[in-house]
Amino acid sequence: HNLTITQGKLFFHYNPKLCLSEIHKMEEVSGTKGRQERNDIALKTNGDQASCENELLKFSYIRTSFDKILLRWEPYWPPDFRDLLGFMLFYKEAPYQNVTEFDGQDACGSNSWTVVDIDPPLRSNDPKSQNHPGWLMRGLKPWTQYAIFVKTLVTFSDERRTYGAKSDIIYVQTDATNPSVPLDPISVSNSSSQIILKWKPPSDPNGNITHYLVFWERQAEDSELFELDYCLKGLKLPSRTWSPPFESEDSQKHNQSEYEDSAGECCSCPKTDSQILKELEESSFRKTFEDYLHNVVFVPRKTSSGTGAEDPRPSRKRRSLGDVGNVTVAVPTVAAFPNTSSTSVPTSPEEHRPFEKVVNKESLVISGLRHFTGYRIELQACNQDTPEERCSVAAYVSARTMPEAKADDIVGPVTHEIFENNVVHLMWQEPKEPNGLIVLYEVSYRRYGDEELHLCVSRKHFALERGCRLRGLSPGNYSVRIRATSLAGNGSWTEPTYFYVTDYLDVPSNIA
């Protein structure tokens, strides 16, 4: 807008934040220059609390790290170098490059900038070799853009010569660093050979998330399962459950009422301010606690030095998902009996873990797994792929695949051998790939016309006998059925096997 004052003059007093240069501009645009008398524009009460600059400061050096910015700028000295009290560095987070010096300023003089007072450097006698002032900004957020400017702080001049310097606002972004852990990993099994893994992005990506790394490792069953005799009275049979499938998407929606109208769909109840505040506090606490764990609990591995020492970490090797089922080394339970199943799973520490690289999504279907087997899954978020990966501390989750139908069934015939004193040795093959492992066998036998009897055969007993022995049988026709019990439950009964026990007292003698 054009402003013209045809008559009258300007009068400025007691404006401590208004620089004289701005008042002189007002004289020019209003056409009143030359009308004012000496005392109409006070030299001592206008701009006496402001830094009124008329020179431009330029930054000469900028260096960044993930949490620091090192700045240096060209030296500046007023005509009387004693008038320079120091520099004021202003900075704040700036997602967009549209910041002005006066953003967030209120009537009390406060604003949204963080201000650092910096002492002037030592003055050199040689004007050509003056030290460049600077400042190291610490405690910054990774991968965050900051708006920065600097200006001088000078003393009051009796001659009211307006001098000083100020830089333009520059924008500097800190470097990326390792992201925080992925949030809320959930693993479920939808079949006997697959596990579905879902997660949420890290709360602090500290860069642009480029991919996720998912490692999985087959877990050995508890050692007590191999040692305890679950045929003993009072000892509860062990059981394991597989990871249940995901709930429906509708039930997972946030901010939804727990109660549904019987007449149909209901609208979600909005969260109160107290609920939102509580969630923010919980989120802040979780982030602080995660940072504490990362800094205190997890110790970084030592990389190899120039002395030739090897990095103890196993090298990563990509495998196809079809090879995942046989990740671990199978060892027989008892070496003397080769027909026992290889369900003991000690994992070799030198073995390469299978892994998958996930790009542009937060889910993965891990296939080719062994049925009813526990897996430990390790999830890392990465925001750099080359020249070397920059990934987060791992988040861990466990899951067990679903049982395989008929995996616990005894394959092959049940054979028998009759000894003296009416002892019958029953023999059968253990299931080759049971659900988890076989903890015991149930032997059901009966003599024709009598009630059915049951015998429990422990895992250890089966390994020693290759089956079991029935003792003290009365003469007669017998039928026997056997079924295995694994961590997933009972298998199917075998087809009945028949044998006849004679009275050993009636056996004919070869003595003449």
Rank of each mutant, 00 (worst) to 15 (best):
L453F: 09
S251G: 05
V324T: 07
D291W: 13
P270R: 06
V414S: 02
S492A: 06
N208C: 12
F285Y: 12
S243G: 10
L277F: 13
T303L: 04
K278S: 13
G449D: 06
S257R: 08
L237Y: 15
V507Q: 15
S398R: 05
L379H: 01
P270M: 15
D323E: 13
I482L: 09
L235Q: 12
T343E: 07
M427C: 02
E260C: 13
S203C: 15
H254L: 12
R376W: 14
G264L: 14
R318P: 12
S320E: 14
F285P: 11
R446L: 11
S474Y: 10
D506I: 06
P270I: 06
E247A: 12
R447H: 15
V359S: 12
P434G: 09
S344W: 11
D409V: 04
A395Y: 06
S223A: 07
L235H: 12
E290W: 04
L225D: 05
P312T: 08
R376A: 03
P300M: 14
L321A: 09
G489A: 12
S304M: 13
F355P: 10
K271T: 14
E442K: 07
P338M: 14
L364S: 05
A488S: 08
E350S: 14
S367M: 08
A336I: 08
R466V: 07
E217L: 15
T272Y: 07
Y504P: 08
V327H: 07
S274A: 15
W493T: 05
Q252M: 08
G306C: 07
L277Q: 05
S344R: 14
F337L: 12
R318V: 12
L440N: 15
A463W: 12
N295Y: 02
R301Q: 04
A463R: 10
H294G: 06
G322T: 08
Y259M: 04
G436Y: 02
P387R: 05
R469P: 03
M402P: 10
N477H: 04
G308R: 09
R481V: 11
T288H: 12
Y448I: 12
S344G: 13
T485E: 10
K302L: 09
L277W: 08
F285L: 07
E227T: 06
E227M: 10
T210A: 03
R376V: 08
N490S: 15
V443C: 02
S283D: 11
D450Y: 13
K278H: 02
T303D: 13
R483E: 00
Y212T: 14
T494P: 01
E356Y: 09
Y504Q: 08
H294T: 02
T343A: 13
Y498I: 15
D409I: 12
V331R: 10
C267K: 09
E260H: 08
R376L: 15
L455I: 10
E310H: 03
N422Y: 08
F215V: 13
S243Q: 06
A399V: 09
S304F: 13
S363R: 04
I482N: 00
E495H: 04
T340C: 03
E265V: 05
G264E: 14
S444Y: 13
D385F: 12
H461C: 09
T288D: 06
E495V: 07
E249C: 03
D506W: 10
S509H: 05
T347Q: 15
E404A: 03
T415F: 09
V327L: 10
L369V: 10
P387Y: 14
L464G: 09
S315V: 09
V443Y: 01
R240M: 09
I410Q: 07
P354F: 06
Q429L: 09
F289D: 09
P338Y: 11
V501W: 02
P245F: 09
N208A: 09
K302E: 14
A309L: 11
K432P: 12
N510P: 08
S284K: 10
A309N: 14
S315Y: 11
S367A: 15
S284N: 14
G449L: 09
S398P: 07
F285E: 14
S444A: 07
K278R: 06
R390G: 08
T340E: 12
P270K: 10
A484E: 13
N477R: 09
Y396T: 08
V439M: 08
V329M: 12
T347C: 07
V214M: 15
G308W: 11
T485G: 02
Y230S: 03
P300D: 15
L369P: 01
G264P: 11
D408N: 14
E378R: 06
L437S: 00
E404I: 09
L440W: 15
F298N: 15
L277K: 15
V365Q: 15
L437F: 05
L379I: 07
E388C: 11
K302D: 15
K236E: 12
L487Q: 11
P205M: 05
S243N: 11
S268V: 11
R318C: 04
Y292F: 04
D204S: 15
K317D: 12
V359K: 12
S248K: 15
P403F: 07
V501C: 08
E451A: 14
D250M: 08
F499R: 00
P205A: 08
V423S: 08
H211M: 15
E388F: 15
A330K: 02
L440E: 11
H371N: 04
L277P: 15
V345T: 10
L293V: 07
A405D: 12
E221F: 12
S392D: 00
S305M: 08
L473D: 00
Y504F: 03
L487H: 00
Y259D: 07
A335P: 12
C468M: 12
S239I: 07
D323G: 15
V480H: 00
D250I: 10
Q384P: 04
S304A: 08
L280R: 12
V501P: 01
R471F: 13
N255D: 10
L237P: 11
C456A: 01
S344I: 06
H371G: 14
D311M: 15
L228T: 06
E465N: 10
G234S: 09
